[in-house]
Design a binder for these strands. Structure first.
Lengths: 360, 360
DNA sequence: GATGGACATGTAATCGATTACATTCGGCAT
DNA sequence: ATGCCGAATGTAATCGATTACATGTCCATC
């Protein structure tokens, strides 16, 4: 025995063992577990005792094969180490796991090979549904996730022209609100630290930035749009770029497309002697936990991260169980501007801060 | 049709469909996919063409049932939103997913019900192995994970008296090193911000703290041991406790059992006017990404987070495939003290900083 | 006392793959 | 010509559950 590769594992009790021990048929055992009310008290007791004695647990693969379900959903995450997604995942996990679903987390990490593997997994029927946090429909070289004909829901990143439910926030509107806040404080020279141009969130937040400026009658200055890619590193580099500007040309405020970049930027310019918010007001986006931990605390758009996850999960469950009926295709959750310590009116001389750094 | 609850999904091609189309038996199809070399060129071509035409993918539940494997491992994480674990998870994911394993992430979140559900899952044969990042063997009310007779590996938190492989760092030694660093700088009044007393990591790090003091001939002062629980919040409260002390009684340095608490503490005392590291040197533990982002950057013990995950995953794969032979039970990975900006010699007047706050 | 219906349980088909064993065929040695 | 061997493929058992349908029992009703 055990001549093949692999480890011999103690054989688990099967339903037939329980049936034999209880002196009933396998059907009765199955029914006792699935719909206890249809078997009479006395039989039920015998069966349950046998279940306990044998330590029986149904084999899920067999059940899945029979009922054509897996009770597993796959969640595609761009980067599991990103705190924003980690918090969305918590909401997803809460909802899904109390509904009895297991979670396979597909950490894409920018790797097409991984993505392809997961697409194959889903196509092979390993998941009853998929939650997309990744801004695009997953693909493998010759397959597309949609071919799996599996319920799909997207969250956080809007995926245009797809007709499955999506749970997002109003990125344009909240970005406009964030920049509007800076304008109300009296800023007129406001930079934008952007995400990767191809990203839909970036496009929407940039649009919000532009709208706010336009409404205030402030001319857009392309030189104030700094390139970024949502990483802390990008924030550091944008900070350096800012420092390289002549003092008079420097903006008095900055809106970053996400918190991590904002924090990287603050750290960099502060280390060089700029005071936040005195010399530069900064607004972030996302509301990650660290936005409230950093120094100074970051004014930011806080997204309902858990709720985004929970809502998307609930939609997916609805899709998986009762079908599409009555589902809203495009759910928007409220996100709010949280005022903290990184924003303040510009210094006396309006338009720029001529005194510059080194005041601490 | 589709009269039952649930959504009708397009039926996927089965192996029999492929066999029919290719004009061969199901066995040949299966063999073509599993061991191409045993079927002759011409047949293989016909089968592969049929596979492509039908879009066939093997049904994993059926295969799992037959071969008694799932190619899934369960990872138990205390808290998925904790950045330390998120990074360990990345290492796990890298190794496991390239080996073809799927990942079910059990986010325990302190909930015994969740834990129980996952134990049942594993006992039901839903996973080929389990990775424990959680410092204890998982339990359900009447079951213990060990009863599942599934390969187990623990990482990060040492689980005493269990005889499965464990991948950790030398917590006692590195904690001693961290405190030793403060002593070398000239500090003699060193506080310790602890974790929950029941936690094994806490116990080991406390032991390291004590050893360092003892070696330096510094008397331990129970009043300098602040209660904590590894959360940012606990750091904030410890910071308040520190501020409540009279200036002369205040320690000049502090070792925190993890980075999040260290960061919370720094933020709090800094907001009250204390300068870090001038008025208080702080050393953390873990080396999370934010330890390098915060202000000032945090001197800390950096754990090889990805590597811990990757190594544990590799051990588990070994256990699952070739059995226990040749496995080290207790693997220690190196962790190093990373010197950054939060530590410095104490101020002139040795023993305490009488000038106190309000210097910025 | 037959009839029928409600209820509890049993029998056996089924889900879709893998694989041990059986079969077929061609070639080669005797 | 016979028999044997090995290669290629086919046949059917098997994994462990769920569940449609069949069966049997008991009691109420006419």
């Amino acid at each position: 025995m055990a001549k093949r590769t692999g480890v011999t594992r103690q054989k688990a009790a099967r339903i037939a063992d329980v049936a034999r021990l209880a002196g009933v048929s396998v059907a009765t055992v199955s029914r006792t577990l699935a719909r206890p009310e249809v078997v009479i008290e006395e039989t039920r007791a015998r069966v349950l005792a046998a279940v306990r004695d044998t330590g029986y647990t149904p084999n899920i693969s067999a059940r899945n094969l029979r009922v054509r379900k897996t009770m597993v959903v796959l969640v595609a995450v761009p980067d599991i180490a990103n705190p924003f997604f980690a918090e969305v995942l918590q909401g997803i996990d809460d909802t899904l796991s109390t509904a009895g679903y297991g979670l396979i987390i597909a950490n894409l990490a920018g790797s097409p090979e991984k993505e392809a593997r997961y697409v194959d997994l889903v196509c092979a029927g390993q998941a009853d549904g998929v939650l997309l946090l990744c801004g695009h429909v997953m693909r493998s070289p010759d397959r597309d996730l949609r071919e799996a004909h599996v319920p799909l829901v997207a969250a956080c990143e809007y995926i245009p022209r797809e007709n499955f439910p999506q749970v997002t926030i109003d990125n344009v509107g909240t970005a406009r609100e964030a920049v509007g806040h800076l304008i109300e404080l009296g800023h007129t020279s406001i930079a934008y630290l952007s995400g990767p141009k191809s990203n839909i969130l970036e496009q929407q937040r940039l649009e919000g930035y532009r709208q706010a400026l336009r409404e205030a009658g402030i001319a857009a200055d392309a030189g104030l749009i700094l390139p970024g890619d949502f990483t802390f590193r990008a924030g550091v580099e944008a900070g350096r770029a800012l420092l390289a500007l002549e003092t008079v040309a420097r903006p008095t405020a900055l809106f970053a497309a996400n918190d991590e970049m904002a924090i990287g930027l603050i750290k960099t310019v502060h280390a060089a002697g700029l005071q936040i918010p005195d010399d530069l007001s900064v607004v972030g986006f996302d509301g990650i936990a660290y936005a409230d931990y950093c120094e100074p605390t970051l004014t930011t758009i806080v997204q309902p991260r858990r709720d985004l996850g929970a809502t998307a999960a609930a939609e997916l469950i609805a899709l998986m169980t009762i079908g599409q009926a009555g589902l809203r295709k495009n759910i928007k959750l409220p996100a709010t501007l949280m005022l903290r310590d990184s924003t303040r009116p510009p210094r006396k001389s309006p338009g720029h801060s001529s005194r510059g750094a080194r005041s601490g």
